[in-house]
Design a protein around this nucleic acid. Structure first.
Length: 465
RNA sequence: GUCUCCUUCGUCUAGUGGUUUAGGACACCGCCCUUUCACGGCGGCAACACGGGUUCAAAUCCCGUAGGAGAUGCCA
């Protein structure tokens, strides 16, 4: 039987980066084994599910090139089927109507907790037969409490739970809607899912779901529960840690290939390999090398990886990538200039946001000169800049190397270190003291713009004297 | 409380009884390169949670303890 897996996010919140990893592992498992990767939107919680969140799931998966087979299954469209199964189980005597009110149960639960007892549904309605008119029941599964259940988890290994630990879970709510437990089992079965790969938080749910499979007489799929992702403090990764949703990382300027590689390495390894291509990931992925322990999200490592992938991307594709981050329209000439300077720009930036910021030097002259720049605005510096302007003006053709040599000569003649002139030039051209080579910038900006910027720096500070 | 899972440098991890003075990566520190910031190169710091077993031999197997996480919903 060919392998069929699914990614089943719920659109009740923005897609979590941990969910993205679950999707990735499912996808890799399918692609590695030549199986199918299906998508199911679990939108049965109508109140909290939104169209935006659903759209986001598609967008993020597409962004990461995690493609799914066939059309996504929309869980809410399958409500009738879920109900049908619930009623069938009642007819089969495997489930029953329960008329206990949530208030009653809450009370019992509170009491049990107070006395330090384990709370379980006490089975009040278990042996009652039939319906009571005028009351809306829930449907509960008649759990088999005998013996124990063992799952052979692809990640966690053998896990055994005593069935007596379980209780009669609700399959259908009093409003007639199916619970998550019922829906997943029915859908996974109907979709012919062979392997359920999901977050660790579902491990104990598995034993409840296995009871449903049993009651329906269905063969259960294999399971793989991958550990969750935590924040730097060891608690579940959330907004509190700065960024928890996949969209956040996109907005922070991380490339899809970075997220792909980082998430893959978080909890999975292939010897000492750190940089892993999509092709190799598909070739190498297996569950033997998925770790059992939860991992913390490390921003610094993510950044380092991103820097790597920025350097690896070709310049044109990087330019296209950063345009939305620029927040302004740019002309063809400006685009051309950024492209010319891209080699130097990209080797010093860690994110698309940073890259866009530094690319601004090719879009417009600085409108302010930051504090450190002003150190290079003394009379001496300004007079040297005048000379630099002269050099630029005279030079034809204006090329980086000869310009550099001329300025070096100028520094020697004036018995001053090159860094003094270079930094003043940097301040004038960029408004800040970090940038690629000033000589490269001038070559790209060309004579007129370079001189204009340096002159404007001189004028700006000259007024002080 | 009960049940389940987890535990190698600060972090991600390699390691599946002897090849290990426990390897790599990020971070950190130092040096080199250098017109700044980066990049890059070289070097350094740094870990088997604890206690018992099993064994000629244990990070690796077993049992406890401690710590952490998850589940315990008419949420998913």
């Amino acid at each position: 039987m060919p392998i069929r897996v699914r990614f089943a996010p719920s659109p009740t919140g923005v897609l979590h980066i941990g969910s993205v990893r679950t999707a990735l592992f499912n996808w890799l498992f399918a692609r590695h084994n030549g199986g199918e990767f299906l998508l199911r939107i679990e939108d049965t919680d109508k109140l909290r599910s939104t169209y935006e969140n659903t759209k986001l799931i598609f967008e993020i998966l597409e962004w990461l090139c995690i493609d799914w087979d066939g059309n996504p299954v929309i869980q809410s469209e399958r409500l009738e089927r879920h109900k049908e199964v619930a009623f069938e189980l009642v007819n089969l005597g495997k489930a029953y109507y329960c008329y206990c009110s949530s208030e009653e149960l809450a009370l019992k639960k509170e009491k049990a907790l107070k006395s330090g007892m384990q709370y379980k549904y006490d089975g009040t309605c278990r042996e009652k037969i039939g319906k009571i008119e005028g009351k809306t029941p829930v449907i509960r599964l008649k759990t088999n409490f005998d013996g124990d259940t063992t799952v052979h988890d692809m990640v966690q290994g053998e896990v055994t739970v005593k069935n007596s630990q379980l209780d009669d879970l609700v399959l259908l709510r009093s409003d007639g809607s199916p619970t998550y437990m019922l829906s997943v089992v029915v859908d996974d079965h109907d979709m012919d899912i062979t392997h359920v790969i999901r977050g660790d938080d579902h491990l104990t749910n598995t034993f409840r779901q296995l009871q449903i499979y049993e009651a329906c007489g269905w063969k259960a799929p294999d399971f793989g529960h991958i550990p969750l992702i935590y924040g730097p403090d060891g608690a579940k990764l959330s907004k509190r840690h700065g960024a928890a949703s996949a969209r956040d990382y996109q907005g922070l300027g991380y490339l899809p290939e970075t997220i792909f590689n980082y998430l893959l390495r978080l909890g999975w390894s292939h010897g000492d390999d750190e940089i892993i291509s999509r092709m190799d990931a598909i070739r190498w992925f297996d569950f033997d090398n998925v770790g059992k322990s939860p991992s913390r999200f490390d921003m610094m490592k993510l950044q380092n990886l991103n820097a790597h992938y920025i350097k690896e991307r070709d310049n044109k594709s990087l330019l296209d990538y950063i345009i939305p981050f620029l927040g302004c329209e740019i002309s063809d000439i400006q685009q051309g200039n950024i492209l010319k300077g891209m080699n130097s720009l990209k080797e010093r930036e860690k994110t698309a946001v940073g890259l866009a910021m530094s690319a601004r030097i090719y879009i417009s002259a600085p409108d302010t000169f930051d504090e450190p720049c002003q150190k290079y605005s003394s009379k001496i510096h300004l007079s040297l800049l005048e000379k630099v302007v002269h050099i630029i003006d005279e030079m034809d053709p204006l090329v980086e190397e000869s310009l550099c040599n001329s300025v070096k000569l100028l520094a020697e003649k004036n018995n001053i270190k090159l860094v003094e002139i270079a930094q003043a030039m940097r301040g004038a051209l960029c408004g800040k003291l970090t940038s690629p080579s000033v000589f490269e910038i001038i070559e790209i900006l060309e004579k007129e713009e370079s001189i204009k910027r340096i002159r404007s720096f001189i004028n700006h500070f000259e007024t002080r004297f």
